[in-house]
Simulated assay, not measured.
Amino acid sequence: MTHVYRTTATYAADDASTNWKERAARYSLLPLRLFLGVTFIYAGLDKLFDSAFLSATGTGSIGELMSTVRNSSAVPALVDVALKSPEGFGYAMAFGELAVGIGTLLGLLARLAALGGVLISLSLWLTVSWQTEPYYYGNDLAYMMAWLPLVLAGASVFSLDAAIAERRRRSR
């Protein structure tokens, strides 16, 4: 029988390794959160400041885009809803992307913001990106999958959610 003797230095090395792994795990979703938050803020602002996009007709408009993808989308009824008021749909999409991006970046209602990101990406995949061949060329499916870890884990560091939770914990 072999006995393993551990020294204090061995325990300290194990603790340092465990602490590093725990810290890495804790911060692992931060780059994804930053990327998705900034990207969705940019996408929302891009739509709001593009007068052509927020039009019912014309080159580059949301109305033209929805008309173009209507017959090739997986859910034409979803496109029909957008076509009832293309400008309103364009504004809703832009403000939705802004809300999702800001919530994600600040870590405020982070799981809810991420769920919004999933729903926006899913709706774009089922409508605009559906006809993309092969499917992995379309980016909306990849965005949808990228949001899922944030739906599950939320924002544990550098977030208003974490600050609020810590404040509640201390006040008990």
Rank of each mutant, 00 (worst) to 15 (best):
S61L: 03
L115C: 03
V4D: 13
S123I: 02
I62P: 00
W20V: 10
I41D: 04
P86S: 06
L105P: 05
A113W: 04
A13M: 07
Y143R: 07
A12K: 15
A163I: 09
V69E: 04
A43R: 06
A9R: 11
R70H: 13
E22L: 15
S123M: 09
M66Y: 11
L48R: 08
L105Q: 00
Q131R: 14
Y11V: 10
E22H: 15
S171N: 13
S129M: 10
A110T: 02
F53I: 00
P149V: 07
D15S: 15
S67V: 00
T8C: 09
R169P: 05
D46N: 13
L141Q: 07
V79D: 01
G117A: 06
Y136E: 09
D14N: 13
V79K: 04
D140F: 15
G101W: 01
G116W: 00
A56R: 03
A43W: 05
R23D: 06
A162Y: 03
A12G: 11
A114C: 06
L65S: 12
T68I: 00
R23S: 11
S67F: 04
Y5G: 13
S121K: 02
L105I: 03
L150V: 06
K21G: 14
L65T: 05
V38W: 10
P76Q: 00
T10I: 08
T10V: 11
L115V: 01
V157F: 07
Y135M: 09
M144E: 04
W20K: 12
A114R: 00
Y91K: 00
S85Q: 03
S17G: 12
Y137F: 15
S72L: 10
R168N: 15
L78D: 02
T68F: 09
V38R: 06
W125L: 15
S72T: 11
V151C: 09
V79N: 03
F89Q: 02
V81I: 04
S73N: 02
P31D: 01
A77Y: 07
Y91T: 00
K47P: 11
A99S: 09
A99C: 04
G58P: 09
A165L: 11
D161P: 04
L108T: 01
A52T: 06
S55C: 10
S159H: 03
A77S: 10
G44Q: 06
T39R: 03
G96C: 04
L98K: 02
L54R: 10
Y42H: 15
A110F: 06
S17F: 14
R111V: 02
R172M: 10
Y137T: 12
L108W: 04
V157R: 09
L30C: 08
T10E: 15
R167D: 13
M144A: 13
V118H: 05
S156Q: 13
S17W: 13
M1W: 13
T59H: 06
S129Y: 10
T7L: 12
G116M: 01
L48T: 07
E22Q: 15
A74C: 08
F49R: 08
S55F: 05
E166T: 14
G154I: 02
A142T: 14
M93Q: 01
Y5L: 14
I62Y: 07
L78N: 03
F35A: 11
Y91N: 01
A153Q: 12
T104M: 05
R168G: 12
D80S: 12
L124G: 12
I164W: 13
L106D: 02
T68A: 12
V75P: 01
T132E: 09
S129N: 15
